[in-house]
C-alpha cells in the first residue's frame, strides 16, 4: 500500500508530536516543543503563500502581532473571553490582510518584499507607540485561556506546559491538514499554476489577483493564530512579536525546510527553533549562524532541506 504525501505527512507529524514527550527529561522541553509547533503553524501559512503561490512576505510577524495583541487586549478592553479574542484576532488579521493585500499583491518581487516589510514594521510601530491601549514597548499581560480549567473539571488535569504542548500540537495538525487539503483543491492548483507562470495561469482562466489574495488572507490567519497561541502560553506579549526579525525568521524557517512542502517547512521551523535552544552557549553567534544558513540554503538547496533530501534519496533509488 502506498500512502499519499498528505496522509504520510500527517501521520509522521502526529507520531512525532505524540512520541517525542517520552524522551523529555524535564517540563522545560514541553515549552520548547510548544514553541516549535507555534512557529510551525505560522510557517505553514507561509507555505501556502510562498510555497504554493510563489509570493514573498517579509511582514507576516505583523499578523502574529495582531493575533497576539487581540488575545491580550480582548479580555481587558472588550471583556471578551480569551478564546473569542483569538477568533477576533484571526478575523481582524483576515480583514486587514484583505484590505492591505489587494493593492500590495499587485506588486512583484522586491517591491512586494519591501511593501510587506513596511507593513510589518508599521504594525510593530503602532503596538509600541500606542501605549495607552497596548501597554507600549514594555508589553502587556495576557489572561489565561481557560481551556485547561475546563479540561480539569472534566477530570483531565494537565500541567500548563503539557497542556500547551498538546494544544499547540493539535492546532498544528489541523493547520497542516487544511494546508494539505488546499494543495489539491482547485484554489491550490490555481496557486501552483501562477507560481509556475503567471501569464500561463491567466491564459487558462485563473483569476490571479483573487487567488493570490486568498493565499495572503489564509496565511495571515495562520500567523495570527500562531501569535495568539504564543501570547496565551507565555501569558505576556511585547511588540517584538510583530518585529522585522520575527518576520525574517519565519521566512527563513520556511525556505530552510522547504517552502514547497508542509512537512519540510514545519521541519525547518523545528530545527531553527531548537538550534538556538540547544546552542545557548553560542548565543553570540546566533545572528551569524542564521544569516549563514539563509545564504547557504539558498545557494545549495534552493528548494529547502527536506525536498532536496527527498530528491537525493529518490534519485538513488531509481
Amino acid at each position: 500500500m502506498r500512502l499519499s504525501t498528505k496522509s504520510a505527512t500527517l501521520l509522521v507529524l502526529a507520531l512525532l508530536i505524540v512520541a517525542t514527550p517520552f524522551f523529555f527529561p524535564s517540563a522545560y522541553y514541553y515549552r520548547v516543543g510548544a514553541l516549535v509547533f507555534v512557529n510551525g503553524i505560522a510557517v505553514t501559512g507561509l507555505v501556502i503563500l510562498t510555497g504554493y503561490a510563489g509570493q514573498i512576505s517579509l511582514g507576516h510577524a505583523g499578523f502574529a502581532g495582531i493575533g497576539a495583541y487581540a488575545s491580550a487586549l480582548g479580555p481587558t478592553h472588550l471583556s471578551l473571553p480569551p478564546s473569542l479574542s483569538v477568533l477576533l484576532g484571526a478575523a481582524l488579521s483576515a480583514l486587514i490582510a484583505f484590505l492591505v493585500g489587494r493593492p500590495i499583491l499587485r506588486l512583484k518581487g522586491y517591491y512586494l518584499a519591501v511593501a510587506t516589510l513596511g507593513f510589518g514594521i508599521l504594525v510593530s510601530m503602532v503596538l509600541a507607540n500606542e501605549s495607552g491601549i497596548t501597554g507600549g514597548p514594555d508589553g502587556v499581560q495576557v489572561a489565561e485561556l481557560g481551556l485547561r480549567d475546563l479540561l480539569a473539571s472534566l477530570g483531565l488535569k494537565l500541567k500548563a506546559p503539557v497542556f500547551w504542548y498538546a494544544f499547540s500540537g493539535v492546532v498544528l495538525l489541523v493547520g497542516a491538514w487544511l494546508a494539505l487539503n488546499l494543495y489539491d483543491s482547485p484554489t491550490g492548483r490555481a496557486l501552483r499554476a501562477l507560481h509556475g507562470s503567471e501569464v500561463a495561469a491567466k491564459t487558462v482562466g485563473v483569476d490571479v489577483p483573487r487567488v493570490t489574495l486568498q493565499a495572503f488572507v489564509i496565511s495571515a490567519v495562520y500567523a495570527s493564530v500562531a501569535g495568539s497561541l504564543l501570547a496565551l502560553q507565555n501569558r505576556f506579549v511585547t511588540p517584538d512579536i510583530a518585529g522585522y526579525m520575527y518576520s525574517i525568521e519565519l521566512v527563513t524557517m520556511a525556505v530552510f525546510g522547504g517552502a514547497g512542502s508542509v512537512f519540510g517547512a514545519i521541519f525547518g521551523a523545528g530545527i531553527l527553533t531548537l538550534l538556538p535552544q540547544a546552542l545557548t552557549f553560542l548565543a553570540e553567534y546566533e545572528q551569524l549562524m542564521l544569516g549563514l544558513i539563509m545564504v547557504l540554503v539558498m545557494i545549495f538547496m534552493r528548494e529547502g532541506l527536506v525536498p532536496s533530501a527527498l530528491r537525493l534519496i529518490r534519485g538513488r533509488g531509481a
Binding site: 510562498t50 522586491y110 546566533e286 545572528q287 551569524l288 544569516g291 539563509m294
Partner: peptide, 17 residues
C-alpha cells in the same frame, strides 16, 4: 527573486552578527 532577497537579507544578518 525570492531566493535572491533571502540571500541578501541573510548576508545582512551575517554581517551584523
Amino acid at each position: 527573486v525570492v531566493s535572491l532577497i533571502i540571500i541578501t537579507i541573510g548576508a545582512s544578518i551575517f554581517i551584523r552578527g
